[in-house]
Design a protein around this nucleic acid. Structure first.
Lengths: 205, 205
DNA sequence: ACTCAAAACCTATACCTATTAGCTTTTAAG
DNA sequence: CTTAAAAGCTAATAGGTATAGGTTTTGAGT
């Protein structure tokens, strides 16, 4: 279709559209090439293969999400910030399901790429939100991880339709869960919650 | 390799091994056929295609996880039950990463299949655990969903290596997070936490 | 034991996608 | 203008998916 010079960035953009339309697993060199009005092998001058193409989509998604997260928490603190951050992710996932899925595939990023990606930015925003709660330093990382886990887990399950078969709409639970996190983080701000014994033995490797 | 008569169940089993060894996305008819000492087309008498093969692996994983969850919470209540349930999932994911990934792909199950799968069993175990907290009926579903989201989210992020670049080992956060959920559910058992206004407008479609 | 039909496999084939190799056409710098 | 690199293209291989149609087992009924 559209010929306009292939660039790495354009491949990522086309791949991202494709992901949202057909699902991240259908982001394929052949289809992207088709949409760019170019033969498949031509793409190899710009990306090393399918893996890198998808990686670019993943990085694009992480960037976009970080941008939105930044906007969402700007000037807010406490529960408003928490709500804004969480909603920015959920809204993004609803508007761009394929990209959100791509962002979950950050697993496949090598260490250097991951470090230079927007990944760390996300952690910083989350930390910023948590700072508003004055969470005790010893609990901060845990809170960051819990927030990330719960938000990503909920969105994933919601997207996969896991909540479609039980009665209250997912949105209601979402509100309650955010409320719960707010409560919990408030509690963590005072006492550093003495570490309970590890709930089960680590494999001693 | 081993010839012993192909059955749907065996395909699922071989597929599950394959998933753990190479990753769920490498569960392919060709490779399963190879491992069964059979030609690829022969599999079509037992499954309708790649999609159904993977679906079988997903169902197998859901069954296994439900079995373990059942064992893990048997005779326990309160925080012990919570910990046991959560750990049963995390341990399963560590021992069978590919199957765990497969279980996350429940999205692709059609409604009937999903309903008759082990999916509902998981919800029941979670509910059972929550019952030990005497969570207010109005909050129960939300608690179930939060527990599911947090546990699955954490495990996914841990598996993807997201926690590898910050200092306290993931296991420590895991313990803290379970502790946090315990605290929260205890709080939810008393007051039904008046519903806060929805944190943001639903799309009014 | 014998038959014969279904079950379980196989071969052949067509179509995708991925990837490599090597050629041709632009394009823009000097 | 010239010319070298950039950007694309064609050709060709490999491996996975899927369908069609044939052959061999196997076991149920007689």
């Amino acid at each position: 279709m559209a010929r306009a010079g292939i660039t790495r960035a354009r491949l990522a953009a086309v791949g991202a559209e494709l992901a949202d339309e057909l699902g991240f697993e259908h982001v394929t060199l052949a289809e992207v090439a088709r949409r760019c009005g170019v033969q498949t092998p031509s793409l190899y001058s710009h990306v090393s293969g399918t893996a890198e193409l998808r990686e670019q989509v993943t990085l694009l998604a992480l960037e976009e999400m970080a941008d939105r997260a930044a906007e969402a928490v700007a000037g807010l603190s406490g529960k408003s910030a928490l709500t804004g951050l969480a909603n920015s992710y959920r809204d993004y996932a609803r508007q761009h399901p394929g990209r959100f899925t791509a962002s979950s595939a950050a697993a496949t990023l090598d260490a250097e790429t991951a470090a230079s990606s927007a990944g760390p930015r996300h952690a910083r925003f989350t930390e910023a939100v948590l700072r508003g709660y004055a969470v005790h330093p010893d609990s901060r990382v845990h809170a960051v991880r819990m927030l990330g886990s719960t938000v990503r887990g909920f969105i994933t399950l919601e997207m996969s339709g896991s909540f479609d078969n039980s009665s209250p709409p997912a949105a209601e639970s979402w509100a309650q869960i955010i409320h719960g996190l707010d409560t919990l983080f408030r509690a963590w701000s005072t006492a550093p919650d003495e570490a309970p014994p590890p709930p089960h033995a680590e494999d001693p490797r």
